[in-house]
Simulated assay, not measured.
Amino acid sequence: MQNLYIGVMSGTSMDGVDIALVDITDGKITSIASDCYPMPTEIKSQLLTLCNSKQTTLQALGELDHQLGMLYAKSIDQFIKQNHIDKKQVKAIGCHGQTIYHSPNSQHPFTMQIGDANIIAAKTGITTIADFRRKDMAYGGQGAPLVPAFHKAIFLNPSINCVVLNIGGISNISVLIPGQPVIGYDTGPGNVLLDSWINKNLGKNYDKDGLWAKLGKVDQSLLNTLCDENYFQLPAPKSTGRELFNLTWLNQKLSNFNLNAQDIQATLVEFTATTVAHEINKLSINAHLPCQLLVCGGGAKNPLIMKRLSALLPKWEVLTTDVKGVNSDDMEAIAFAWLAYCRMNNIPSNIPEVTGANQAVSLGVIYQ
């Protein structure tokens, strides 16, 4: 008999609602179906304004929380109908929610995801797990990244030095080196600056296949300036987001430069690849084992980023997670289905070495 879970994720890029149906039986994780539902322009605009301005009203925040809850519920119901899923067979939905602010290092650490899970549970009739990050933070952790525990469950291999790289809005790595504790953290920007810059200049949501960046040339002086950011000097555990890496930050870095827009885009691609490679090159690997970098997230579909990663990491075989049987687009949605499974079975799902929490706990709040 199948044990079905649904995972729901909308990430930093805010390009859509990713949904995956997963069977988790006897510890084996099998992806059954997946889809992505576009983020309505009006909601995305409100989210970007909120995240960029860091200002809102209680009324606006409450209404946006409600709108996102309704969007998630509607998308899940559509997904269930399209895939002819019997709701009674679904044990739980794991929904990450939309992060609007993440501040793990402030005097009073907090993280905030919205998208009312009460609405999801009520509209779908399925037990819903949400609010995954705050329990980890209550135990002294960063509340991020959470996906390394899932990466460990599916990719840990005693005969391979493996790093899983998710390039969403922010890039994060899970380090799976045989004989070493699993570590993972945010390396810095993924697509967030690339998407913001092309949107500002061309009105596009993203640079498909890196074609616009290919028209430009990397400016080494600008690259050095971008890399001169305190975040990159911080030791792990660490996490970041739009709170730091945004257009305001970029414009400040550009203040002493007079470059064409394509050169800036090309340099931003190099910035993403360079900051990832810098972290991976610092790792202590088992010299007798092969090295594989498994890439997922939207950045895995950018051939320019993938090319630069291969060039900057000559010891590593750079692949997408598709070659391991996990669709690179679905990784995080599948992960939150797995996190829901862990919560429903009270299985610890954070890794203290990754987040900095003082103990392993089962993450998420149950809404029924």
Rank of each mutant, 00 (worst) to 15 (best):
Q113C: 03
G143Y: 02
K301I: 00
M39L: 13
M306C: 01
P38T: 11
T30N: 15
A149W: 05
A300K: 10
K214M: 08
N157E: 12
L156G: 07
D322R: 09
G7R: 03
L247P: 05
T41M: 10
Q67Y: 15
K74H: 15
Q107A: 08
D322C: 07
L61T: 10
K87S: 09
A153N: 12
G94N: 11
K282S: 11
F232E: 05
C51L: 14
C162S: 14
E243Q: 08
I285H: 06
G210T: 07
S310N: 05
K152D: 10
E243A: 08
F150E: 01
L64V: 09
L61P: 03
Q220R: 14
K54W: 05
F232I: 13
V17L: 09
D228A: 14
L293Y: 02
Y341G: 09
I19L: 06
L268T: 03
S13P: 05
L293M: 08
S53V: 13
L50H: 12
N258E: 10
M14G: 10
N166Q: 06
I120W: 04
L363T: 01
G203H: 10
P38R: 14
I280G: 11
K315T: 11
I119S: 06
I264K: 08
P237S: 05
G325I: 07
D23L: 03
P189W: 02
I129Q: 06
M70V: 15
Q368I: 08
I280L: 15
L293K: 04
V269Y: 08
V163E: 02
E317K: 14
C162H: 06
S284H: 14
A360W: 03
V90W: 09
L211G: 05
D26I: 04
S239T: 05
S75V: 02
L71P: 01
N172T: 04
P145L: 02
I126S: 02
A138H: 00
L254F: 10
G7N: 02
P181W: 03
A273G: 07
D15Y: 02
F271G: 04
D329L: 13
